[in-house]
């Protein structure tokens, strides 16, 4: 086992374990904490894949913004008594079964991938020569300019929507 493989084994193992912890903890605050750790590991995986910018985004947006939002909501709702109740629904064995079967299916699919498209121009060296952020930026602002603008619109709509929905009605 080479060093990268060992690293991947650690990161991968941690990600799986942390995911399981996230979906099984009774207290949602604990889940959020485990998720924070999970996101850090995923960011590390991105780094491992030479995607520094995405790793940074992962930490800033997911860990910094979305998880904090979750925490806010949990605090806001003040769900003390929830902790004493059952954590799974009645149909949970179905959920588990489907999850396992789905995983098996996906693994089977991996063996079926036989078409490898031609390699693109963004080799590791190419990215390294100008830096990841610049590479992403160039692609984003040229080829994907329109989707980028649309993404900004989606965010705008989300802001307005969230405010409208969560605001207390003033009669």
């Amino acid at each position: 086992m080479t060093l990268p493989q060992a690293f991947f084994a650690y990161i991968g193992g941690m990600i799986v374990v942390l995911s399981l912890l996230v979906v099984t903890r009774k207290n949602p605050v604990h889940s959020v904490m485990w998720m924070l750790l999970l996101f850090v590991h995923i960011a590390a995986l991105y780094l491992f894949l030479n995607a520094e910018f995405l790793a940074a985004i992962q930490i800033i947006v997911y860990a910094g913004a979305i998880l904090v939002l979750f925490l806010f909501v949990i605090m806001l709702l003040n769900l003390r008594k929830e902790e004493t109740e059952k954590r799974f629904q009645r149909q949970w064995p179905f959920g588990a079964g489907i999850g396992v079967v789905l995983a098996v299916f996906f693994v089977l699919i991996v063996g079926k991938i036989d078409v490898i498209p031609p390699l693109g121009q963004y080799s590791i060296d190419a990215i390294r020569s100008e830096g990841h952020i610049m590479t992403v930026g160039k692609v984003l602002y040229t080829e994907f300019l329109l989707p980028f603008e649309i993404a900004s619109l989606i965010l705008l709509v989300a802001i307005i929507g969230a405010v409208v929905l969560a605001k207390k009605r003033v009669e």
């Binding site: 629904q89 149909q91 179905f94 959920g95 489907i98 079967v101 789905l102 299916f105 996906f106 089977l108 699919i109 079926k112």
Partner: peptide
């Protein structure tokens, strides 16, 4: 919600199963 989700997941499984 979960029942609908279950049905949807089963549907997705069926499609993936068909593909595989």
């Amino acid at each position: 919600l979960s029942n609908y989700g279950l049905a949807m997941a089963l549907g997705a499984l069926a499609i993936i199963g068909y593909v595989i």
